[in-house]
């Protein structure tokens, strides 16, 4: 598509904003709509648009396949690693409260998952005192985990794009 001036210019104008929107969806996912998966596919869509307009070789330079494969694995590793980290802090697997870093929280760490229906006002107040408005561990855990999801999704989508686009007609 080297001759398609309008396409090239429009793509050039749009791609930065698509990438920026993907990052917004990723890091604002705890307040606005979206999250890791949405951010990942939007990010990948921007790279795929780049590849369609400027050619596969240019896209491979921007997003090297080897790096994409590594990032895909890294995303899963970040997600699962968060779970292991919360275990190391004395909680259950993927129990973000344990990531809060305060000793008081460990005793109530399994609360959101296991004791969904039990309200224990004293415990919640306790947590409020030590951490202001937001329970730090939950927020931190969700952000890290969403980052892992976003990395894996974006990298896998770009990898699939390369796999499809790199094929030539067999017959």
């Amino acid at each position: 598509m080297r001759q398609q001036t309008i396409l090239r210019i429009v793509a050039k104008l749009l791609i930065p904003y698509i990438l920026l929107f993907a990052l917004y969806v990723q890091f604002h996912g705890d307040f606005g709509p979206g999250g890791g998966f949405q951010a990942g596919v939007i990010f990948a869509a921007a790279v795929i648009l780049y590849g369609l307009v400027f050619g596969l070789r240019a896209a491979r330079r921007v997003a090297p396949p080897l790096l994409m494969e590594t990032l895909a694995a890294l995303g899963v590793l970040i997600f699962a690693g968060t779970g292991v980290a919360s275990m190391l802090h004395g909680g259950n697997f993927l129990d973000y409260n344990a990531l809060g870093g305060s000793g008081q929280q460990h005793t109530r760490s399994a609360e959101p998952v296991a004791h969904l229906h039990e309200h224990s006002p004293e415990g919640i107040e306790e947590r409020h005192e030590s951490h202001g408005m937001l329970p730090q561990g939950q927020h931190l855990g969700i952000m890290v985990v969403e980052l892992g999801v976003g990395l894996t999704v974006a990298a896998i989508m770009i990898t699939i794009f390369f796999a499809f686009a790199g094929r030539e007609r067999v017959r």
């Binding site: 996912g29 705890d30 999250g35 699962a80 993927l94 959101p112 919640i124 329970p135 927020h139 969700i142």
Partner: peptide
Amino acid sequence: KVGVPNVVTAILASYRGYDTL
């Protein structure tokens, strides 16, 4: 308890963390 205003994100990432993993 979770402290993330977007309930969808809170459910997906925290309450249903295993599913999302």
